[in-house]
Write a protein that binds this DNA or RNA. Structure first.
Lengths: 130, 130
DNA sequence: CTTGACCTTCCTGTCACTGGAACCCTTATG
DNA sequence: CATAAGGGTTCCAGTGACAGGAAGGTCAAG
């Protein structure tokens, strides 16, 4: 398989696949002409990585997950701990965004949004004491 | 005011303040010795920027907000539109994170997390057809 | 006069790619 | 046979918003 086919089947851009090779996540063989020769196992790994990235795991977490996946003697506790940490991080981000959302939504609500210059959004950013 | 005092009062690291000058968000004067000489107006702008960044506005959005703030003939509609767009972007991010969270939480729930290697999290990442 | 706490600029690194230039390989067509 | 299109390759630079650190100038106190 050449890179374009793998890219289509794994749902990842060729650039990303080359990058993943660069940083040592995959190790496709090479053909005589220098082209990458992807095996089914490479495709499988790339799809794995695509899904893990889709769940928001960092590249380093993905590296660990791949290593665990390939370690037949792993303990599921290790995987679960990693996923649990990531879940906590996601929750923190959601909370942060929801706090922003609440403030911003409130400000937007109080802004007339007309041709006049008076604006509670700018007033708040400028540090208006309520 | 030297940079350290402004940093404390604006709640921003000195590095960030120098960066903001670099990209043209602020223009503090210089003392004879080359040190930055911050006026109250600079401090005010930096605090404004800190709050806007805290609400998740990008640097370029902050630049626009500052320009609107300083434009006495602005229309509040322009500010509101910018804030509204940002709010929509935040909502999209929240939705994305919540989708991740739902999947991940489900997987974590189904993982025994013991010494055995069987792990539904890895199975899902590997593309297990349900 | 020296110490230590400031300040300065400049360079590098972060994260996970993306775009583009310059060039090689393969296949089809005139 | 030349060439053009459509693969592939490497390498370099840029993204956003800073943070870390080196090398060196400045200033007040002891």
């Amino acid at each position: 398989m050449n890179i374009a086919e793998v890219a289509t089947r794994a749902g990842l851009p060729p650039k990303t696949i080359r990058y993943y090779e660069d940083i040592g996540l995959i190790h496709p063989r090479r053909q005589a002409n220098g082209y990458r020769a992807f095996a089914e196992a490479d495709l499988h790994k790339l799809a794995f990585l695509g899904r893990a990235r889709g769940l928001g795991f960092s590249i380093e977490e993905c590296r660990t997950l791949l290593a665990l996946y390939e370690d037949q003697s792993r303990a599921s506790a290790d995987v679960k701990a990693l996923a649990q940490r990531h879940l906590t991080a996601i929750d923190a981000k959601i909370a942060e965004l929801q706090a922003m959302r609440a403030t911003l939504s409130d400000l937007v609500h109080h802004c007339a949004g007309d041709h006049r210059p008076d604006c509670p959004i700018l007033a708040d950013l400028a540090g208006a004491a309520p």
